[in-house]
Amino acid sequence: MQVSEIISWLINLLFYKPEVFCPIFYPGLVTILALLIFIIWLERKIAAKVQLRYGPLYVTRKAGGILQLLADLLRYMFQEPIIPKTVDKIAFIAGPVLLFATAYVPAALLPATAEFTGLRSELSLLAVLALLTLAPIFDIIIGWGSNNKFSLIGSMREGYIVMSYEIPMFLSTLAIAMVYGSLNIVEIVEMQSRCWGILLNPIAAATFLLVALISTARFPFEIAEAETEIVMGPYTEYSGILYGLLMGASYVKFYVLSMLFALLFLGGWHPSITWLEKIHPAAPGLVVFIKALIIMVFGIFLRAVYPRFRVDQAIRVGWHLLFMLSMLSIAYSLAVIWLVG
């Protein structure tokens, strides 16, 4: 009797308390790990399809090698992380861990549905954005801590790119927040039940999407770790689980930005499927997840299409194109507010 009570209490705590469920299951850690395995597999598979080859195949051959990434993950886990003598040890070890953590934390704050959110705040959008800006610090720190010229150059590139995309990111998000007059993600989504944000302010949507691509080093902006120039950029000296964390962090950030895009511009959990709520209160949030997944698939598909830009060209895109676009999106929002009221 008592054991069953404890179990039911535990289940209640884990699965029906949003404060616990959101960070751990959806949209938090478990979803992220599953998604990491799936999306990297999909990335390789799509690239392989375009390039007329098979891609990952031999691990679980019947399922098209979908467990390949799980095998890779296990390998990273048990591989010895080599720490070179010349590195700054604290920065070298703490960097990847903190980078992954800062990439993950905003995901934990995203709402699953209107009633089921980890963070209830008037300012949840601002909070997610503020946390997103922290990650580049560690990217630069690890490049410096690696004490390798290639790492250092990669970090410098990362720093310059960060400076060029951060302001457009804020401005485009604030533009859509202005239209809805709210900084609360849940409220913004609720107001999109009739008209999606992408229709209200397409400029902001385009800017945000481009920023998402640049900030997570998707092609054609995979510049900080350009392989043929600077080996692996900031990650050159890394191996084992530390490298796994670094690789994962960029995908996690991409996931957060895609979720944010789905929530802000694609109507979030609308059209809501109410019968899903009978399964679990967070289940209607799957709609958001599917929308975010579509964005991510688009992002990873670009790898098969584009070469990479040079760093100065990317910065020019950031300042000339994105900055102007984000200013335009603010003006557009003001016009929409003035017209619609």
């Binding site: 601002l126 954005l129 503020a130 630069i140 960060v162 951060e166 804020f170």
Partner: peptide, 22 residues
């Protein structure tokens, strides 16, 4: 609000610092 503003703008500016320190 100010807390989040500080986090995004000011801590973000720290990146610049680190970069140029390097």
């Amino acid at each position: 609000v100010i807390s989040l503003f500080q986090l995004s703008v000011y801590v973000g500016a720290a990146v610049t610092f680190i970069l140029f320190s390097i």
